[in-house]
């Protein structure tokens, strides 16, 4: 990447720069916030309504997003130090695990929820064999119930209560 940065990088790469994407997203969020804020009473500068402050913030966000996108596009961005690349496997495993926990906790209780979270999320590394993951899930489920439910007295039934 650094070699090409000396000259003008191709348009596609300039458009894909993190600053351009981030700036454009910020602009969109800002505009959306302004639209929503407009649906609340704005009031006046002297007596601000509930929409006034969000409207200001949306505008600020939109302006900053434009500035970021424009500078990143025209001036280019210095290359990042630890260039992160999206890792779909870890992303999906971790998020699905959290989703399983949120879904199961009120319906099935703490132990199934923790077990599901650990089983699913552990797939993200691709370094844990199924049996090891199962053992980890079981251990963490029992441990967390013992520590947080029994020990600290949090309201966490081991198995489901509510339908």
């Amino acid at each position: 990447m650094s070699d090409e940065d000396a000259g003008t990088p191709p348009l596609r790469r300039r458009l894909a720069a993190p600053g351009v994407i981030g700036g454009a997203l910020s602009l969109l969020v800002g505009l959306w916030v302004m639209g929503e804020a407009g649906s609340y009473a704005l009031g006046t500068a002297r007596r601000m309504g509930p929409g006034y402050f969000p409207m200001l913030l949306g505008a600020l966000m939109a302006i900053l997003g434009t500035v970021l996108a424009a500078t990143a596009f025209w001036r280019g961005e210095p290359p990042g130090e630890a260039e992160d690349r999206a890792d779909p496997r870890a992303l999906i495993a971790v998020l699905a695990g959290l989703g399983a926990f949120a879904y199961l906790l009120p319906r099935a209780g703490l132990i199934p929820a923790v077990a599901a979270l650990v089983m699913i999320a552990a797939q993200g590394s691709g370094q844990l064999r199924p049996l090891a993951a199962l053992a980890l899930a079981g251990a963490l489920a029992v441990l967390s119930w013992a520590i947080f439910g029994l020990g600290l007295g949090l309201q966490l039934p081991a198995f489901a209560a509510r339908p």
Partner: peptide, 17 residues
């Protein structure tokens, strides 16, 4: 690989409580 599932459990229970 063993630590991060435990971190997630810790996060979830903490936030829920």
């Amino acid at each position: 690989r063993l630590l991060y599932p435990a971190i997630l459990v810790f996060i979830c229970i903490g936030v829920f409580s």
